[in-house]
Design a protein around this nucleic acid. Structure first.
Lengths: 189, 189
DNA sequence: TAACTTTTCCTAGAGGTACTATGCAAATGA
DNA sequence: TCATTTGCATAGTACCTCTAGGAAAAGTTA
C-alpha cells in the first residue's frame, strides 16, 4: 500500500489551505485526514494534537505576513511605508481569511510561533523609522498601529462596516491618512 | 421529579458565566446541561442548537456593553467621553473575557443580536458628538475608534503586549490621548 | 376535582471529533 | 539482505451535537 507522504509541514500547509476554504474553526484533524485520504489517527505521527496543528498554522501565517510586510516596506518610508504595510496586511487577511484567523490565537512567548510573531512585530516597528519617535513613544505607536490594523480588518470581516452607505475601503484610506498625520505631529510629553 | 426551571434566558446567562470561567470556545451544550444537572438533550427544548446559544450570548454581551457605554457617556463630552467609553470597553473585556469573545462572532444584520449591536454602535458614535465632524468623516472616525479599541483589547488579551518593558495600560492611556488630538485636529478634505 | 393540553425533561441512539494503543508493512541504511 | 525506523491502519474510548419518541409535571378548562 502506497504511503501518502505526510509530514508536519505538508499538514500545516494543507491545513492553511483548508482554513481559507472552509474557515479556521472548521479545520479538524479528521477533515485534514480526509483531504489526504488517510485515517485521522495517522496524522498523530506528525502532529502532537489538534492544538499543535493550530499553532503551526499560526506560525505559517505569521511568517507569510512578515514576508509580505518586508516586501511592502522595501525601499519605502514615511507615508508610503505606512500605506504599503497596511495594505499588505489587509490584503493578506482578505486573500487568506482562514490563515489570518489562525494567526490570532494565543501564542506563548517561547513557543514555535513566537519567532514568526516577533518578525512580524519588527516589521510594524520598521514603519516608524521615518517618524523618529523616542521610546516609549515608539512602542505606543507600534501598538496603536497594530491595534488599528487588526481591529479594522477583523471588524470588516465580521461585517461590522457593511451596513452603512460609506465604503469600507474609503474609510480605510482615510484612516491611514489620519494615522500618518498623527505620527508626524506626535509629541512626547 | 422536580424541574430545573430552564429557559432560553437562563441558559444564555449561565452560558455567559461559564464563558467567563472556562473560555467561550469551551462552552458546550453538554457542559451547560451539567451545570443545571440535566441531560444535554433537555436544552434543545429552549435553544435551537449550539449556534443559537452562541448568538444569544453575543446579544447579551453586546447589550451589556451598550449599557456600560451609555452609563460611561452620560454627562460627559470630548476627551472625557472618549476616555470613559474606552475604559468601559476595555474593563468589560477584562472582567468578562468569555462574554467579550462571544460578542465577536459574526452577526447577520437581521438576526436577534443585530439590535444590541446597533445600540453599541450608536454609543460609539455618541462619543463624536463633541467633535462635530461632518459625514462621511464621522463614520470614518467611528470606524477608527471601534477598530482601535477592539484591536487593542484583542491583542492585549492574546498577550501581544506583554513581552516588552512598556506597561500596556500606559500605552492605552497614551493612545487615548493621541486619538483625542487626532479628532480635534481632524480636517475634512 | 377530573380530564385534557402543553411544556419540560427523560431515555435511546446516530453520527462526528480527539486521541491512545498496538500492529504490520513500507522505506532506510548498515 | 536483514534490522531498524517510520508511516499508516485497526480498534477502541471518550466527549460532543442533535433527533425521536415517551413520560411526568404544570397549566387549563369543564
Amino acid at each position: 500500500m502506497a504511503r501518502a507522504g505526510l509530514s508536519a509541514d505538508r499538514l500545516t500547509r494543507a491545513g492553511a489551505e483548508l482554513a481559507d476554504e472552509i474557515g479556521f474553526e472548521n479545520v479538524t484533524v479528521s477533515a485534514l485526514a480526509r483531504r489526504f485520504g488517510v485515517k485521522d489517527a495517522s496524522l498523530y505521527s506528525h502532529i502532537k494534537n489538534a492544538q499543535d496543528l493550530r499553532v503551526r498554522m499560526a506560525a505559517l501565517a505569521l511568517a507569510e505576513m512578515a514576508d509580505r510586510a518586508a516586501a511592502a516596506l522595501a525601499g519605502r518610508s514615511g507615508r508610503d511605508a505606512l500605506a504599503a504595510f497596511a495594505n499588505a496586511y489587509r490584503d493578506y487577511a482578505t486573500q487568506h481569511p482562514g490563515r489570518y484567523t489562525s494567526a490570532q490565537i494565543e501564542i506563548d512567548s517561547d513557543g514555535p510561533a513566537a519567532d514568526a510573531a516577533r518578525r512580524h512585530s519588527a516589521m510594524t516597528r520598521a514603519i516608524l523609522r521615518g517618524y523618529a519617535l523616542p521610546e516609549p513613544d515608539e512602542t505606543d505607536a507600534v501598538r496603536l498601529l497594530h491595534s488599528t490594523f487588526h481591529g479594522f480588518v477583523s471588524l470588516e470581516r465580521a461585517g461590522s462596516f457593511s451596513h452603512g452607505a460609506r465604503d469600507s475601503g474609503a474609510s480605510w484610506a482615510r484612516i491611514l491618512d489620519t494615522l500618518h498625520t498623527l505620527l508626524t505631529t506626535w509629541h512626547s510629553d
